[in-house]
Design a protein around this nucleic acid. Sequence first.
DNA 1: GATTTATTGTTGACGAGGAAACAATAAAGA
DNA 2: TCTTTATTGTTTCCTCGTCAACAATAAATC
Lengths: 148, 148
Amino acid sequence: MDKRQQLMSELMDLCNEIIWRNKPEVELALKDYKLSEIELIENIALIPNANVTKLAAASYMTRGAISKLTKKLIAKNMIESYQSVENKKEIYFRLTINGQKINDVHQELHQSFLERDKEVFKYMTDEEFDTIFRFIGRYRHHLKNITE
Amino acid sequence: MDKRQQLMSELMDLCNEIIWRNKPEVELALKDYKLSEIELIENIALIPNANVTKLAAASYMTRGAISKLTKKLIAKNMIESYQSVENKKEIYFRLTINGQKINDVHQELHQSFLERDKEVFKYMTDEEFDTIFRFIGRYRHHLKNITE
DNA sequence: GATTTATTGTTGACGAGGAAACAATAAAGA
DNA sequence: TCTTTATTGTTTCCTCGTCAACAATAAATC
């Protein structure tokens, strides 16, 4: 098979395997929360003035899905919405104290996964890191280019 | 942020962006077929004596989901099932002529995506390819290790 | 300023896929 | 061999996310 195709195929597999491996642990540690809710909370923490549209883009989901999810998270008192005076259309979200707690636990889980997988990175040189970073960056940049 | 976490995060993003970019093109070229059906056909072509269990593992889906999908593909005359004489439990699948045609078109699409993205790979040395392959292999091997 | 066009978030209908329980068969253990 | 345990594929119920249409607001165009 084409070396490039092989690379991309294995990359996809790796991502899927990581997701399948980590998902149950996250949902066990954060009972009462689905992975999609947890990841939405993460994105709301990361994106300044997050609204439905930005969150949809960051989550690779539709605006409809995010709209429903935010509603659910507000009901659970994980996030709250606010608006600006100069724009009556856009609705922004931020974490409540509860939401921040969930996000903290989630971030600690990320750390624990890194710890669990540390041997994968142990002997990687800076060169090797950079090589992979450059590849990812080049690909993402290319996709952005051909999309607009 | 931790360099390793940054790497994994960008890797996931890259995969998601590729999927979101390619999915509509695949479904446009192969009208009447969902992406999941097309990918299942691909896996049936790849896996010798594919059954529900093996396909579920390869697709990162549940056996229930695969069971329904194979039923649908049989109804569409894309695949057919067969059994062995020495095992009355397992049910295997193979492509029909129609299924092979779909798979061929799909493989050509893969090629066209590589062509579209060729500049991403253009200046990559063998060293760089190997670095990324080794990283992926190491990670997948590690996950396999800690799972059993 | 008035009118058109684009973008925002929301909703309801729908389909895809997961969870769990199930019967049928195979494998393992006594 | 006989019994127990594991694995196979299937089905029902239910949740999640997409799609498409929509009203409300903003931006662009005239």
